[in-house]
Design a protein around this nucleic acid. Structure first.
Length: 492
RNA sequence: GCGGAAAUAGCUCAGCUGGUAGAGCAUCAGUUUCCCAAACUGAAGGCCGCGGGUUCGAAUCCCGUUUUCCGCUCCA
């Protein structure tokens, strides 16, 4: 990472704080690690990103509907999904090499070694020992096994180990007011399961026919061992997910479709396509038969923003198995043999985007420090060149001065526009300063009421990106703003 | 979790080898100006991250701790 990009990232972070986009959570109490709050402008921007996604996915697709499932879910769901086991690893650190290992994998390696050496009896004993310890969550026993078998760190070669610790990435809490006798529930580590468990509800109540999708925006929680890089990895984060249910055998076709469609969504925002890349997963998760990340070039390298996964029928099958309810779809369409496809568990293509990362990406991409120096004086401005549809404030209205009835006239215009758009009124400070303040939060246009406005009802519009002004009739403002911030530009 | 660095006003930072806190910008109230960060006057704003120690005396030295950043690690 060069100094410049490093600097840029830092500047964006301080800009985000200074102008009310992102604050650290609980800041007056020294903060809470890897948790962030969105401020007055951040909340607007974030909502606009959500709207853009929702419109592109739900509104623009007849066969995709949106839901909002609860964060709490039945604990069995996380057993079915594999999160209870998969998110729950016994870890051990070697104090000399500072490397961390999964304790069970270290023992597994030894078992494999014993097997290849022909000591199958020893291997079996060790295996049984480990399985018993894992089953009873006996971490002390796991450490004993490692010590007793003289298992050393592959890097340092020593057996200077820490205690075995359980890293559970799911947050848990007690359901029911009384701790005693209450049930442990988890805060969902992903939103996808809320869609899978509602598959039949939505399909039946919406009379959905395959292929169809269910979309959802919502919070998810992961107790990351280490969470850093601002809002790239947070303990509480927001996902925008869509699960697309399809006929088995058509998954590669739909996988390709969504891979292309999702990148198009990103690039439609005007982002330099060169800053995006696909990253195919070489190692697939247990549920997937194909997976790709859409990565964005942050100052610290390409990072995943969105994932497209072919999840097969893994999730629905698991839920069928664990719940005992049939997660099937009857497909009346006729197949090549002239008979209906009939009952099957649908396959799933998932698109899953991290809203907070998308937010940061949008901010980084819009942030610009412009040098406006002339021969007479040095000058500069910081401007967020956000797509107008995403801008927190759509327009700002200024009276050129605080007197002569200009504020009243400006208020009058403001009162009309605020029925339709999020607009701001400002009369403090010189006009130039007000322009710059709006530049800093990405407001696409500023409307100024001057003395001429009182005579002929015209105002000047000053554009954020070009800093050019034009005089228009006040009655045309609603349409001008409407055209400028229209979603059509992004969705068309 | 390990190693390194940092933390002083809303922001960016100064504050030297210890002597009770300062600038610029921002904020607020005025005056002036009237289309791109203008000027002037005044005001407000700080347990110097937190806790302990050394000292007559600590923002400053030492220890601990929290948070942030960087590297490693991890990342369904």
């Amino acid at each position: 990472m060069s100094k410049n990009t490093d600097e840029l990232f830092k500047n964006v972070i301080s800009h985000a704080k200074e102008y009310g986009f992102v604050f650290q959570s609980s800041e007056i109490y020294d903060g809470l690690s890897a948790v962030y709050d969105y401020g007055q402008n951040g909340a607007e921007l974030k909502n606009n990103i959500k709207t853009y996604w929702w419109k592109a996915m739900v509104q623009m697709h007849e066969n995709i509907v949106g839901i909002d499932s609860a964060i709490f879910m039945h604990p069995k769901i996380w057993k079915a999904s594999g999160h209870v086991d998969g998110f729950n690893d016994p870890m051990i650190d070697n104090k000399d090499s500072k490397k961390r290992y999964r304790a069970d994998q270290l023992i597994e390696d030894r078992i494999t070694k014993l097997d290849t050496e022909g000591k199958t009896d020893d291997a079996e004993v060790l295996q049984a020992d480990m399985d018993a310890a894992l089953k009873s969550d006996d971490l002390t026993r796991l450490k004993e096994i490692i010590i007793n078998n003289n298992i050393t760190c592959p890097i340092s070669g020593t057996s200077n180990w820490t205690e075995v610790r359980q890293f559970n990435l799911m947050f848990s809490t007690q359901f029911g007011a009384m701790a005693e006798g209450s049930e442990e529930v988890y805060l969902r580590p992903e939103t996808a399961q809320g869609i899978f468990v509602n598959f039949l509800n939505v399909q039946k109540s919406g009379r959905m026919k395959i292929p169809f999708g269910i979309a959802q925006i919502g919070k998810a929680f992961r107790n990351e061992v280490i969470a850093r890089q601002f809002i790239i990895r947070m303990r509480e984060f927001e996902q925008m997910e869509m699960q697309f249910f399809i006929r088995p055998g058509t998954e590669m076709e739909w996988y390709e479709y969504w891979k292309t469609a999702r990148l198009k969504w990103h690039v439609a925002l005007g982002t330099d396509p060169a800053k995006y890349q696909y990253h195919d997963h070489a190692k697939l998760a247990h549920y997937a038969n194909a997976a790709v990340d859409i990565e964005y070039q942050f100052p610290f390298g390409f990072k995943e923003v969105e994932g497209i996964h072919s999840r097969t029928d893994f999730d629905l099958s698991q839920h069928q198995k664990f719940s005992g309810k049939k997660m099937q779809y009857f497909d009346p369409e006729l197949g090549p043999d002239g008979k209906p496809y009939g009952n099957y568990i649908p396959y799933v293509i998932e698109t899953s985007i991290g809203l907070d990362r998308m937010f940061l990406l949008t901010l980084m991409n819009a942030y610009e420090e412009e040098d406006l120096s002339t021969e007479e004086r040095t000058d500069s401005r910081t401007v967020l060149k956000l797509p107008p549809a995403l801008a927190p404030v759509k327009a700002a209205i200024f009276p050129l001065t605080k007197k002569d009835g200009l504020p009243e006239k400006a208020r009058e215009i403001m009162d009309k526009l605020k029925l339709e758009y999020h607009v701001q009124y400002e009369e403090k400070d010189a006009i130039g300063k007000r322009y710059r303040r709006q530049d800093a939060i990405g407001t696409p246009i500023c409307i100024t009421v001057d003395h001429q406005s009182l005579e002929d009802n015209t105002v000047t519009i000053r554009h954020r990106d070009s800093m050019q002004q034009e005089r228009v009739h006040a009655d045309d403002l609603e349409k001008i703003i409407g055209d400028l911030v229209s979603w059509k530009k992004l969705l068309g």
